[in-house]
Write a protein that binds this DNA or RNA. Sequence first.
DNA 1: TCGTGGAGTCTCTTGAAGGAACTCAAGAAG
DNA 2: CTTCTTGAGTTCCTTCAAGAGACTCCACGA
Lengths: 150, 150
Amino acid sequence: MQRTQFGEMACSIARTLDVIGEPWSPLILRDVWVGFTRFEQLQADLGISRKVLTERLNHLVDHGVLERRPYDKRPRYEYHLTAKGAELVDLLMVMAGWGDRWLAGEAGPPALYRHHACGEISRVDLRCAHCGEPMHAGDVDLLPGPGAAI
Amino acid sequence: MQRTQFGEMACSIARTLDVIGEPWSPLILRDVWVGFTRFEQLQADLGISRKVLTERLNHLVDHGVLERRPYDKRPRYEYHLTAKGAELVDLLMVMAGWGDRWLAGEAGPPALYRHHACGEISRVDLRCAHCGEPMHAGDVDLLPGPGAAI
DNA sequence: TCGTGGAGTCTCTTGAAGGAACTCAAGAAG
DNA sequence: CTTCTTGAGTTCCTTCAAGAGACTCCACGA
């Protein structure tokens, strides 16, 4: 069983929260995704305390979600998404989709997503990797997996 | 522009985090999903402080994600997912999918998902609601939407 | 050689989480 | 009836994390 911020848990949700569950972490990833890649840019855009930004960036780099790249000789770095981090951004898209649907209100969603493959403004849809039909929380049974607690 | 925990942000990710971004909230939703619906069950399963559990449950009920149902005359309640909450569990499935993929290690994933429609052990796959092709973070352009900040 | 800008540290204050004991109401037990 | 027990919280106190803002360090460029 694995140690998480929330205790000893054999739970992929708790483990994921250990990586991006702390305050600001998802917003930092969003910002890196949209192109704010430097410390000062992130700090200015988010209005986060510098101390916490330092801690979060280190944590995300330690977990292989962000990569620190020097862009000059002096201590000057840019943060970039790794493959692992890019898949977290998928999660952020789903999160944004929920917010667009339930919290946007009159004004409508603050951002739109244009899908490269079809060129249309669209949104993500959750489908079964096996049969391609819609797959939502009510469409599944949960079974213990190989890594389940005993 | 909307007030979030993280400042004034026109961002559906920040707004969603306002609902489920606090520590424990996603795990509370997961527990309610899998059938821990009462205060004492949640407290015992999560090992969360009673004070924080009270705060989180109230917050989730206030945001229409959980519904409080009396199951007896006395102060005895069960918490159930609303439609809004059930769609958050979709998000949790995606979160679990990322954890299964990147954090499960040798032992394999702690839980498996059997899809009702096809009966197979499967996982969620993100697809474009418009064309049905895969839709990941790298497959989209972000555009300002109608609710964007000016 | 002095100033500037990026990327952090340091320190202090405030706010949130943990833990454990306490409350309250209504059946159940005796 | 009176007491016991149980579910669902409250209260209080301590500890840890976040916020704010000043300070450091270092390489270039004027």
